[in-house]
């Protein structure tokens, strides 16, 4: 049973939130994980999610927005079902990160932070994702794809398009 009367989240997520609010020395610590999990479920952090999370953690909505807007992984508008995040930071750049980004732009027909019309893919140029030694690297949602070439990237995209891609949550 959720502590919130009519949660906008699925029962599983609501239960997870109930627990998250209890494990820390300070309830507020659950804020960033909650925002992430909310985004994982809804696709972005909606106003309703902000309202519910602020209620759960006894925070002002403004407070939640202050925090939410700080972190680059959190978004307030929907992304595609598969958010393709291409790292172009130094190590990846040296091994073709930009080429990969341009390839994805052409392939998907969208730019940075764009979403394909069918809502399947979105594209983002991101800062270093901690895969420098396996560059160039891309994250699709939370899954890593290393040592890519445009050809390998096509295969990755094809896998997701066909519903074969891994979707870590």
């Amino acid at each position: 049973m959720s502590t919130i009367a009519s949660s906008i989240f699925t029962p599983d997520t609501a239960a997870r939130f109930d627990k998250l609010a209890t494990i820390y020395p300070l309830k507020r610590s659950a804020l960033i994980p909650m925002l992430l999990y909310a985004q994982d479920e809804i696709g972005f952090v909606s106003d309703a999610a902000v309202a519910e999370i602020s209620q759960r953690l006894d925070l002002l909505e403004l407070d939640v927005r202050n925090v939410l807007s700080y972190y680059s992984m959190l978004r307030t508008v929907p992304a595609g079902k598969y958010n393709v995040q291409v790292c172009t930071n130094i190590s990846c750049m040296l091994r073709g990160g930009y080429e990969l980004l341009d390839h994805c732009k052409n392939k998907l027909g969208i730019g940075h932070k764009g979403v394909t019309p069918d809502g399947l893919f979105s594209l983002e140029e991101v800062e270093c994702i901690g895969a420098c030694c396996w560059a160039p690297a891309v994250q699709v949602n939370y899954d890593f794809h290393d040592d890519l070439t445009p050809a390998k990237m096509d295969a990755v995209l094809a896998d997701y398009a066909a519903g074969r891609g891994k979707d870590v949550k």
Binding site: R28, L31, L59
Partner: peptide, 19 residues
């Protein structure tokens, strides 16, 4: 949730405190 600065020790504590 995506912030390099949070690697700095005190910023990390702020982040862990939900800020």
């Amino acid at each position: 949730a995506g912030a390099y600065e949070v690697g700095e020790e005190s910023a990390l504590m702020e982040s862990l405190e939900g800020k």
